[in-house]
Protein backbone atom coordinates (compact mmCIF):
# COMPACT_ATOMS: atom_id res chain seq x y z
CA UNK A 1 0.00 0.00 0.00
CA UNK A 2 2.74 2.43 0.93
CA UNK A 3 5.71 1.69 -1.27
CA UNK A 4 7.86 4.36 0.31
CA UNK A 5 7.31 3.45 3.92
CA UNK A 6 7.73 0.14 5.63
CA UNK A 7 4.52 -1.63 6.46
CA UNK A 8 3.43 -2.01 10.06
CA UNK A 9 4.09 -5.15 12.03
CA UNK A 10 1.57 -7.92 11.45
CA UNK A 11 -1.28 -7.95 13.95
CA UNK A 12 -1.30 -10.67 16.54
CA UNK A 13 -4.21 -12.68 17.89
CA UNK A 14 -3.06 -12.47 21.49
CA UNK A 15 -5.76 -10.02 22.58
CA UNK A 16 -9.21 -11.25 21.75
CA UNK A 17 -10.66 -7.79 22.28
CA UNK A 18 -8.61 -5.50 20.08
CA UNK A 19 -10.08 -2.41 21.73
CA UNK A 20 -8.99 -3.41 25.24
CA UNK A 21 -5.97 -1.39 26.40
CA UNK A 22 -3.38 -2.25 29.05
CA UNK A 23 -2.83 -0.19 32.19
CA UNK A 24 0.37 1.88 32.36
CA UNK A 25 1.85 3.60 35.39
CA UNK A 26 2.97 7.22 35.30
CA UNK A 27 6.64 7.07 36.31
CA UNK A 28 7.42 10.73 35.72
CA UNK A 29 5.78 13.85 34.37
CA UNK A 30 7.28 17.06 33.07
CA UNK A 31 5.80 20.33 31.94
CA UNK A 32 7.18 21.31 28.54
CA UNK A 33 5.20 24.55 28.25
CA UNK A 34 2.24 26.06 30.08
CA UNK A 35 -0.14 23.57 28.45
CA UNK A 36 2.12 20.79 27.12
CA UNK A 37 3.08 17.91 29.35
CA UNK A 38 5.21 14.79 28.94
CA UNK A 39 4.29 11.57 30.73
CA UNK A 40 6.74 8.75 31.22
CA UNK A 41 4.82 5.46 31.33
CA UNK A 42 5.88 2.11 32.68
CA UNK A 43 4.39 -1.19 31.54
CA UNK A 44 2.45 -3.36 34.01
CA UNK A 45 4.94 -6.21 33.55
CA UNK A 46 7.81 -7.54 31.49
CA UNK A 47 5.50 -9.54 29.22
CA UNK A 48 3.63 -6.39 28.13
CA UNK A 49 6.87 -4.41 27.86
CA UNK A 50 8.53 -7.08 25.71
CA UNK A 51 5.47 -7.46 23.51
CA UNK A 52 5.42 -3.73 22.91
CA UNK A 53 9.10 -3.32 22.09
CA UNK A 54 9.14 -6.36 19.79
CA UNK A 55 6.56 -4.56 17.66
CA UNK A 56 7.43 -0.90 18.12
CA UNK A 57 9.20 1.03 15.34
CA UNK A 58 9.80 4.75 15.49
CA UNK A 59 6.95 6.89 14.12
CA UNK A 60 4.15 4.66 15.40
CA UNK A 61 1.42 5.95 17.67
CA UNK A 62 -0.78 4.76 20.50
CA UNK A 63 -4.10 5.46 22.17
CA UNK A 64 -3.73 6.85 25.67
CA UNK A 65 -6.80 6.85 27.85
CA UNK A 66 -8.52 7.21 31.19
CA UNK A 67 -11.46 4.90 31.94
CA UNK A 68 -14.56 7.03 32.20
CA UNK A 69 -13.07 9.80 30.08
CA UNK A 70 -11.97 8.25 26.78
CA UNK A 71 -8.88 7.83 24.65
CA UNK A 72 -6.61 10.14 22.67
CA UNK A 73 -4.09 9.50 19.91
CA UNK A 74 -0.50 10.67 20.35
CA UNK A 75 2.73 9.46 18.85
CA UNK A 76 5.10 7.45 20.98
CA UNK A 77 7.61 10.23 21.70
CA UNK A 78 10.42 7.98 22.92
CA UNK A 79 12.62 5.78 20.72
CA UNK A 80 12.63 1.96 20.48
CA UNK A 81 16.24 2.08 21.68
CA UNK A 82 15.05 2.98 25.22
CA UNK A 83 13.10 -0.01 26.36
CA UNK A 84 12.40 0.58 30.05
CA UNK A 85 9.37 2.82 29.45
CA UNK A 86 7.64 4.99 26.84
CA UNK A 87 6.89 8.68 26.78
CA UNK A 88 4.12 10.77 25.30
CA UNK A 89 3.88 14.53 24.99
CA UNK A 90 0.57 16.27 24.51
CA UNK A 91 -1.20 19.58 24.74
CA UNK A 92 -4.22 19.79 27.00
CA UNK A 93 -7.14 20.41 24.66
CA UNK A 94 -10.19 18.64 26.07
CA UNK A 95 -11.64 16.22 28.58
CA UNK A 96 -9.30 13.26 28.00
CA UNK A 97 -6.10 15.30 27.78
CA UNK A 98 -7.12 17.14 30.96
CA UNK A 99 -7.58 13.81 32.74
CA UNK A 100 -4.23 12.52 31.47
CA UNK A 101 -2.53 15.75 32.45
CA UNK A 102 -3.88 15.45 35.98
CA UNK A 103 -2.39 11.99 36.59
CA UNK A 104 0.15 12.02 39.38
CA UNK A 105 3.32 9.95 39.45
CA UNK A 106 2.33 6.42 40.51
CA UNK A 107 -1.18 6.67 39.09
CA UNK A 108 -2.30 4.70 36.07
CA UNK A 109 -3.67 5.39 32.62
CA UNK A 110 -4.51 3.01 29.76
CA UNK A 111 -2.61 2.43 26.53
CA UNK A 112 -3.13 0.61 23.23
CA UNK A 113 -0.48 0.29 20.56
CA UNK A 114 1.87 0.52 18.82
CA UNK A 115 -0.25 1.28 15.77
CA UNK A 116 0.39 2.55 12.26
CA UNK A 117 3.43 2.47 10.03
CA UNK A 118 6.83 3.93 10.87
CA UNK A 119 9.81 5.84 9.55
CA UNK A 120 11.93 3.43 7.44
CA UNK A 121 15.14 4.33 9.28
CA UNK A 122 16.81 1.01 8.49
CA UNK A 123 16.90 2.20 4.88
CA UNK A 124 18.61 5.41 5.95
CA UNK A 125 21.86 3.95 7.28
CA UNK A 126 24.82 6.08 6.18
CA UNK A 127 22.58 8.93 5.09
CA UNK A 128 22.43 12.47 6.47
CA UNK A 129 19.27 13.51 8.25
CA UNK A 130 17.56 16.88 8.34
CA UNK A 131 14.78 17.39 10.89
CA UNK A 132 12.45 20.38 10.53
CA UNK A 133 9.88 20.77 13.30
CA UNK A 134 7.48 23.40 14.56
CA UNK A 135 5.90 23.80 17.99
CA UNK A 136 4.11 20.78 19.45
CA UNK A 137 5.10 18.67 16.40
CA UNK A 138 8.60 17.98 17.72
CA UNK A 139 7.58 14.86 19.74
CA UNK A 140 7.31 12.45 16.74
CA UNK A 141 10.65 13.70 15.41
CA UNK A 142 12.20 13.67 18.89
CA UNK A 143 11.62 9.90 18.95
CA UNK A 144 13.45 9.59 15.61
CA UNK A 145 16.23 11.95 16.72
CA UNK A 146 16.97 9.91 19.85
CA UNK A 147 16.69 6.68 17.87
CA UNK A 148 19.34 7.99 15.46
CA UNK A 149 21.53 9.47 18.23
CA UNK A 150 21.38 6.19 20.19
CA UNK A 151 22.77 4.53 17.03
CA UNK A 152 24.88 7.54 16.03
CA UNK A 153 27.61 5.67 14.13
CA UNK A 154 25.14 4.14 11.68
CA UNK A 155 24.04 7.50 10.23
CA UNK A 156 25.62 10.56 8.62
CA UNK A 157 25.22 14.19 9.64
CA UNK A 158 22.26 15.16 11.82
CA UNK A 159 20.81 18.65 11.44
CA UNK A 160 17.77 19.90 13.35
CA UNK A 161 15.78 23.08 12.71
CA UNK A 162 13.17 23.67 15.39
CA UNK A 163 10.92 26.67 15.74
CA UNK A 164 8.03 27.77 17.91
CA UNK A 165 5.89 30.87 18.23
CA UNK A 166 7.67 32.04 21.38
CA UNK A 167 10.56 30.90 23.54
CA UNK A 168 7.99 29.68 26.07
CA UNK A 169 6.42 27.44 23.41
CA UNK A 170 9.61 25.45 22.72
CA UNK A 171 9.20 21.91 24.04
CA UNK A 172 11.96 19.62 25.40
CA UNK A 173 14.11 22.62 26.39
CA UNK A 174 16.62 20.53 28.33
CA UNK A 175 17.02 18.18 25.37
CA UNK A 176 17.47 21.07 22.96
CA UNK A 177 20.35 22.20 25.20
CA UNK A 178 21.75 18.67 25.13
CA UNK A 179 21.57 18.45 21.32
CA UNK A 180 23.05 21.94 21.06
CA UNK A 181 26.01 20.89 23.19
CA UNK A 182 26.78 17.84 21.01
CA UNK A 183 29.36 18.33 18.28
CA UNK A 184 27.70 15.62 16.15
CA UNK A 185 24.38 17.45 15.96
CA UNK A 186 23.77 20.74 14.18
CA UNK A 187 20.83 22.43 15.94
CA UNK A 188 19.22 25.67 14.80
CA UNK A 189 16.42 27.09 16.95
CA UNK A 190 14.12 29.90 15.98
CA UNK A 191 11.08 31.72 17.31
CA UNK A 192 8.53 33.76 15.40
CA UNK A 193 9.21 37.53 15.30
CA UNK A 194 8.03 38.98 18.61
CA UNK A 195 8.35 35.62 20.35
CA UNK A 196 11.94 36.20 21.49
CA UNK A 197 13.10 37.05 25.00
CA UNK A 198 15.97 39.36 25.98
CA UNK A 199 18.36 36.46 26.46
CA UNK A 200 17.28 34.51 23.33
CA UNK A 201 20.36 33.39 21.42
CA UNK A 202 18.62 31.52 18.60
CA UNK A 203 17.22 32.89 15.38
CA UNK A 204 14.16 35.06 14.97
CA UNK A 205 11.97 34.17 12.02
CA UNK A 206 9.44 31.68 10.69
CA UNK A 207 10.69 28.14 10.09
CA UNK A 208 10.43 28.24 6.25
CA UNK A 209 12.38 31.52 6.09
CA UNK A 210 15.06 30.26 8.47
CA UNK A 211 15.30 27.03 6.49
CA UNK A 212 15.89 29.01 3.31
CA UNK A 213 18.53 31.10 5.07
CA UNK A 214 20.35 28.10 6.58
CA UNK A 215 20.04 26.31 3.21
CA UNK A 216 20.95 22.72 4.13
CA UNK A 217 22.42 20.61 1.31
CA UNK A 218 20.18 17.88 -0.10
CA UNK A 219 22.95 15.47 -1.15
CA UNK A 220 22.41 12.03 0.38
CA UNK A 221 19.99 13.53 2.90
CA UNK A 222 16.60 12.45 4.17
CA UNK A 223 14.36 15.31 5.31
CA UNK A 224 11.71 14.88 8.02
CA UNK A 225 9.16 17.64 8.51
CA UNK A 226 6.55 17.88 11.25
CA UNK A 227 4.63 20.97 12.18
CA UNK A 228 1.35 22.80 11.97
CA UNK A 229 -0.30 22.70 8.51
CA UNK A 230 0.68 26.31 7.80
CA UNK A 231 4.35 25.55 8.51
CA UNK A 232 4.27 22.39 6.35
CA UNK A 233 2.62 24.32 3.55
CA UNK A 234 5.42 26.89 3.36
CA UNK A 235 8.29 24.55 4.27
CA UNK A 236 7.77 21.93 1.56
CA UNK A 237 8.34 24.39 -1.34
CA UNK A 238 11.57 25.58 0.33
CA UNK A 239 12.81 21.99 0.65
CA UNK A 240 11.89 21.38 -3.01
CA UNK A 241 13.74 24.54 -4.02
CA UNK A 242 16.79 23.43 -2.03
CA UNK A 243 16.73 20.20 -4.03
CA UNK A 244 15.28 17.69 -1.54
CA UNK A 245 13.39 15.06 -3.58
CA UNK A 246 9.74 14.52 -2.55
CA UNK A 247 10.41 10.77 -2.26
CA UNK A 248 13.09 11.44 0.39
CA UNK A 249 11.04 13.97 2.35
CA UNK A 250 8.88 12.52 5.11
CA UNK A 251 6.12 13.89 7.27
CA UNK A 252 3.37 12.56 9.50
CA UNK A 253 -0.35 13.19 9.14
CA UNK A 254 -2.79 13.53 11.98
CA UNK A 255 -6.50 13.02 11.73
CA UNK A 256 -9.17 12.38 14.29
CA UNK A 257 -9.16 8.69 15.21
CA UNK A 258 -11.14 6.43 17.50
CA UNK A 259 -10.15 2.80 16.90
CA UNK A 260 -6.58 3.20 15.61
CA UNK A 261 -6.87 -0.12 13.77
CA UNK A 262 -8.58 0.64 10.46
CA UNK A 263 -12.21 0.09 11.36
CA UNK A 264 -13.95 3.20 12.73
CA UNK A 265 -13.63 4.93 9.37
CA UNK A 266 -12.82 8.56 10.17
CA UNK A 267 -9.10 9.10 9.60
CA UNK A 268 -9.03 8.35 5.90
CA UNK A 269 -7.48 10.68 3.36
CA UNK A 270 -8.76 9.32 0.09
CA UNK A 271 -8.54 5.54 0.26
CA UNK A 272 -5.63 5.67 2.70
CA UNK A 273 -6.16 5.21 6.42
CA UNK A 274 -3.88 7.50 8.41
CA UNK A 275 -4.00 4.88 11.20
CA UNK A 276 -2.87 1.99 9.00
CA UNK A 277 -1.11 3.41 5.92
CA UNK A 278 0.27 6.28 7.99
CA UNK A 279 0.93 8.26 10.05
CA UNK A 280 4.25 8.42 8.16
CA UNK A 281 4.03 9.49 4.53
CA UNK A 282 6.51 10.80 2.00
CA UNK A 283 5.78 14.12 0.36
CA UNK A 284 5.55 12.18 -2.89
CA UNK A 285 2.62 10.23 -1.40
CA UNK A 286 1.10 13.45 -0.05
CA UNK A 287 1.08 14.95 -3.53
CA UNK A 288 -1.03 12.05 -4.81
CA UNK A 289 -3.68 12.63 -2.11
CA UNK A 290 -6.86 14.61 -2.59
CA UNK A 291 -5.81 17.99 -1.22
CA UNK A 292 -9.05 19.33 0.11
CA UNK A 293 -9.42 16.24 2.26
CA UNK A 294 -6.29 16.86 4.31
Amino acid sequence: MSPDTESAAAPTREHRNIYQPIPMTVADRRDETADVRTLRLEFPGDAERTRFFEAYRVGQFGLYGMPGQGECVFCVASPPTRTDAIECTFRQAGRVTAALRDREVGQRITFRGPYGNHFPIEQWKGKNLLFVAGGIALPPLRAVIWNILDRRDEFGKVAILYGARTVADLVYKHELAEWDARDNVDLVQTVDPGGETDDWRGKIGFVPAVLEEVAPKPADTIALVCGPPIMIKFTLPVLAKLGFPAADTYTTLENRMKCGVGKCGRCNVGHLYVCKDGPVFTVEQLKAMPHADM
Partner: peptide
Protein backbone atom coordinates in the same frame (compact mmCIF):
# COMPACT_ATOMS: atom_id res chain seq x y z
CA UNK B 1 -21.95 1.73 6.76
CA UNK B 2 -19.65 0.65 9.57
CA UNK B 3 -18.14 3.86 10.94
CA UNK B 4 -18.27 4.07 14.69
CA UNK B 5 -17.46 6.30 17.60
CA UNK B 6 -16.06 5.24 20.96
CA UNK B 7 -17.43 7.02 24.02
CA UNK B 8 -16.99 6.51 27.73
CA UNK B 9 -19.87 6.68 30.17
CA UNK B 10 -19.21 6.55 33.89
Amino acid sequence: CHCFDMQDEA
